[in-house]
Design a binder for these strands. Structure first.
Ligand SMILES: [Mn+2]
Ligand SMILES: [Mn+2]
Ligand SMILES: [Mn+2]
Ligand SMILES: [Mn+2]
Lengths: 158, 158
DNA sequence: TCTGATTGTTAGCATTGTCTAACTTTATGC
DNA sequence: GCATAAAGTTAGACAATGCTAACAATCAGA
C-alpha cells in the first residue's frame, strides 16, 4: 500500500553543506514572518485605499460600492468594516456610509502612494495596463520602502 | 456622542464622473479576486518550495526544519502538511519525513523559478541582499508570467 | 405617502492559519 | 537495552475571511 521508502528520523542526517549556510535560517524565518505580517495588513490597506477613493470620486463610500469593487458579498464587507472600526481606521453608523479616521486617511494616503509607484513602475517596464493593475494590487503590500524608492527612480528615469 | 454628520443614503449621489470610469469596476473586482486567489496559494507555494530545498540540501524534509525556517510552531506545520497531503502535493507517514508528489515537485520547480527571477531582478535594481530576499518572498506570489518575463529580461540585460 | 426595490445587517456556517498544552513516538547516548 | 532528549501529533482555542439565507432599514417613484 505504501510504496515510498519510509525513512527513519535522522537517516540521511549527513548535513550535506551545499549552498546557503551560515545563519540564513533565522533570516529566512524573519522574512517569512514579515510576509505574514504584510498579509495580515493587506485587507485593511485595500479597504481604506478604496474607501478614500470612493469618497474622493463619489462624495461618499457605501458598503454596496465597496463590495462591488472588491468583488465580495455585502456581509463580507460589513464584517470587514466592523474590524476596521475596531482598529480605529474608520467610523460608521448602522445603515450609513463610511468615514475614515485621521489614522485611516493617513494609511490610505500611504497605500495610494505605494500603489501608484508600483503601478507606474510596472507600466514603465513595458507591461500592459490591465496586467499592471492586477499585479500592482498584489505587489503593493509586499514592497519595502527601499524597493519603492528604486521603483520610483526607475519609473521617472525612463 | 456621534459628531460625524450622518449622511443619508444617496446624499451626495451626484456621480461626479471624475477620473476612472468606463467599466473598471468589474476589472478591479477581477484584480482583487485574483489577489485573493494568489493569497490562497501562497502557503502551499512556500511550503513546497522549502520542502524541495530541504530535500535537495539535506536529503530529507523534516517538520522541525520546516517549522524553524518558516518561523512557525510545529503544530502549525503538522496542520499545513495535512492540507498539502490532502491537496496531493506531498506524501507523508506519521512521524516520518515529507516527500513531494510529482505535482508537488512541479509546483516547487515553478515557485523556485519565480522566486529566483524576482530575487535576481531586485538585486539587479540595486537592492541590498537582505531586503531583496524579504521582498521577493512576498512579491513572488503576485507576479504574472508577463511581468516575470520583463523582470527576467531586465535582470539579464543589466 | 405608500410601497416596492435597494441597501445593509444579522445569524450561522466553513476554511485557513496560527498558537499552547499535553501527549506519543522516535532517536540518542551511556 | 534503557532512560532521557528530541521530534511529532493531537486537542482545543481563537481570529480572520469568505459565503448564503433571512431579516431590517432606507430610498425613490408613482
Ligand atoms: Mn492591494
Ligand atoms: Mn491598491
Ligand atoms: Mn514566498
Ligand atoms: Mn519563495
Amino acid at each position: 500500500m505504501c510504496d515510498t521508502k519510509l525513512m527513519t528520523q535522522r537517516d540521511l542526517a549527513t548535513p550535506t553543506p551545499s549552498a546557503n549556510d551560515g545563519r540564513p535560517a533565522d533570516l529566512r524565518a524573519e522574512a517569512f514572518q514579515g510576509v505574514r505580517d504584510a498579509r495580515s495588513r493587506e485587507l485593511a490597506e485595500d479597504y481604506v485605499e478604496l474607501i478614500a477613493e470612493l469618497i474622493h470620486d463619489h462624495g461618499e463610500a457605501r458598503p454596496v460600492e465597496i463590495a462591488a469593487r472588491l468583488g465580495v458579498r455585502p456581509p463580507t464587507v460589513t464584517k470587514a468594516l466592523d474590524r476596521l472600526a475596531r482598529e480605529g481606521l474608520i467610523t460608521r453608523a448602522k445603515y450609513r456610509s463610511v468615514f475614515l479616521t485621521d489614522e485611516g486617511r493617513a494609511l490610505a494616503r500611504e497605500c495610494r502612494r505605494r500603489h501608484e509607484i508600483v503601478l507606474r513602475f510596472l507600466l514603465s517596464l513595458g507591461l500592459d495596463a490591465e496586467t499592471a493593475e492586477r499585479d500592482a494590487e498584489g505587489i503593493e503590500h509586499h514592497v519595502s520602502e527601499r524597493t519603492l524608492a528604486l521603483f520610483a527612480a526607475y519609473a521617472s528615469k525612463s
